[in-house]
């Protein structure tokens, strides 16, 4: 089992451009997606996995407060109360459509699948380490499986982990019964 794990402080640049072929997509990325893209790139460096390779990804916290801050900034110049018509006239024009992409929790899974050509068995979830590992173990394949997890903390810190595993390697793993965030698995195993 090979494990890659990275953590980036809130002010730290994430070197995502070194790990993506379609650079124009980066504007849709949260910091979690960027960190995950780096880890997936490191794991699969100079390799082209089979398209049918199963890929399971588990996310954690969320960056969508950007949308609410964008929407509410339109009301800051005076003391207007929130109204539906006010929302449509003033807030809507300042909400970036990109923020909606960032709020969708399957986007990291999708962007990494596109970058690396994963078309096989999959799931995108917010779940425990147990859920992620069970998804992988129960995948209907005997081949190698890619698992990943990421977490975006409220302060902007982003962490991610990726691993290439087989069902037999996961059998009996203590994280199969763990309700901790899925990223916990990678925090532990990248040091082993």
């Amino acid at each position: 089992m090979r494990v890659i794990y990275r953590i980036y402080e809130s002010s730290e640049q994430i070197p995502v451009y070194d790990y993506i072929s379609r650079r124009k997509l980066v504007k849709y990325f949260t910091r979690e997606t960027m960190a995950a893209m780096v880890c997936a790139g490191e794991l699969l460096k100079e390799r082209k996995p089979l398209p049918e390779t199963p890929f399971f990804y588990s996310s954690s916290e969320l960056e969508m407060m950007e949308i609410y801050n964008e929407a509410c900034s339109a009301f800051d110049s005076d003391s207007h109360n929130f109204t539906s018509s006010g929302f449509m006239e003033r807030a809507l024009p300042v909400i970036s459509p990109l923020s909606h992409f960032k709020s969708m929790r399957n986007m990291t899974h999708c962007f990494i699948s596109i970058e690396h050509g994963f078309k096989g068995d999959n799931a995108s979830l917010i779940g425990s380490a147990s859920g992620l590992l069970l998804c992988a173990m129960l995948s209907t394949t005997a081949r190698n499986i890619i698992i990943g997890a990421g977490k975006l903390h409220a302060d902007g810190t982003a962490e991610a982990g990726f691993a290439e595993v087989t069902s037999s390697e996961l059998a009996g793993n203590k994280f199969l019964e763990s309700n901790e965030d899925a990223i916990s698995f990678f925090r532990v195993y990248h040091n082993i």
Partner: peptide
């Protein structure tokens, strides 16, 4: 026995 929220949008 575990809690998992699947987030694959329309396939979740």
């Amino acid at each position: 026995g575990g809690v998992n929220i699947f987030m694959a949008s329309c396939a979740a």
